[in-house]
Every structure is written in structure tokens, then in C-alpha cells.
Nucleic acid binder design. Structure first.
Lengths: 103, 103
DNA sequence: ATAATGGTTCGATGGTTGTAGAACAATCAA
DNA sequence: TTGATTGTTCTACAACCATCGAACCATTAT
């Protein structure tokens, strides 16, 4: 993993709000994997995570949109449009690369 | 590990210069462990790392001092005064805690 | 005592970032 | 078609941050 990427990643996780979003996504993803989600493949990712995030957090839509883009740009999550909203999934490979970077 | 600590840590590592310093310290520490350092205990840490950092980086002393403090404040390194200069060591426990935070 | 060395602290400054709101675009429902 | 829902983009602003130089403090050497 290039150093510049690591900087982007650390920067993305260094904002309280972004870390909140990331942790929420992480936990939603974990729990949705054990719940009844047999109709939805893992690849599709969590549904309506933007909307859910907006409900949980006291921030404007534009700000939350901005934060999602930062997380995506850092490679921490991947978002795929699905009609009006989008689905989103945490990139476990990136998490693993951070762990490796830290020896 | 508290979330607030993680934010501090990520913030500390999200600056290019600070990440440079941290990586230098890390590598100095690793190499000094395998070299002839039989007279110096591990606990004492790397000697004159501030001076060494000043030589390697094109930044003013005050800026480098500031960055060292940020790394120390985040718990990533520990500095102990030794006369005029100080010794410094990377906190491996903190690295391990980041790895654990990332599942 | 005086000077030199190694870091720290302070104040200023320019750049970056987090945030909101308004206007917009795209999709869906009636 | 019209209106509602979901999210994006733009502009603006305040807060924060990286950086420097100067003045400073503490330790060591002369």
C-alpha cells in the first residue's frame, strides 16, 4: 500500500463524524450478515445507508454526502447506485491493508 | 480503546510529515534492535531522534517539535528527556491497539 | 560567568477542512 | 405530468492546522 493512500485513509478516519459513519456502516454490515438477508447477496451491500446515516446523525445531507465521498475516495467503502438511493459496503481488503501497514 | 483516542491517533498519522517522522522512528527502532546496541537497553529508546529528524526533513525545528508532540500526545511514541536532547521510542502497544480496533 | 547546543513556546499567516443552505438532477409514485 | 424522494454540487464561511521566525529556557562546554 502506497504511503499516499495511507495518508488518505488516516485522514478519512480522523474526523469524528466520518469515523462515526464508518463504524455504523461496519456494524450494519456485520449484523446484516447474520440476520435474515438470504435474498440479498453480500456484493450488493447495505441498502439505504445514506438515508440511515442522515437519520442517526445531526448533520445536513450535503455534509453527509461529502463524508461518504471522502470515505469512498479513501477506498474504505464502495457505493453502488441502486435506483434513487445507493448501497454501500465496507472494503475489508482495505482494512486488512491498514493492519498490514502497521506491521 | 476509546473512540476519542482513535481519532487522535488517526489525526496524528494523517499528516504526511508526521507519518514520515513516525515511519522513520519505526525503522530506526527496528534497525537499532538488530545492530550492535548491546550497551543500550531497549527502554532507553532511540537517541537524538529529534536532531536526526531535523536533518532528514526540510522543516523548521519548531514545526518538528510540534509534530513530535502530536505523536506523543496520541500515544504513538514516548519521549524521555536525557540531558539536552531526548530519547524516543515507538509504542508498540498502541500500534497493536489500532490493529485490534480494526477488528 | 559566558557561550554554544538542543528543544520549546508564542504569535502570525496562509491554506485546508467541516459545515450549512440553496439550487439542482435523477428517480419513483400519483 | 406533476410532485415527492434521494442524493449531488456549488458557494460561502468559520474553525482548524501546518508552518515559520523570534524569543525563550535548560543543559553542557569553555
Amino acid at each position: 500500500m502506497m504511503k499516499d493512500n495511507m495518508i488518505k485513509i488516516f485522514k478519512a478516519l480522523s474526523s469524528e463524524q466520518r469515523l462515526n459513519i464508518y463504524m455504523m456502516l461496519y456494524e450494519w454490515q456485520m449484523s446484516s450478515n447474520t440476520e435474515d438477508s438470504s435474498f440479498r447477496s453480500f456484493e450488493e451491500g447495505m441498502e439505504k445507508c445514506f438515508t440511515k446515516a442522515c437519520c442517526c446523525m445531526d448533520l445536513s445531507k450535503s455534509t453527509i454526502s461529502h463524508h461518504f465521498k471522502e470515505l469512498e475516495n479513501a477506498g474504505l467503502i464502495t457505493c453502488t447506485r441502486n435506483g434513487q438511493s445507493f448501497n454501500c459496503k465496507v472494503n475489508m481488503e482495505t482494512v486488512e491493508e491498514i493492519r498490514n501497514f502497521l506491521k
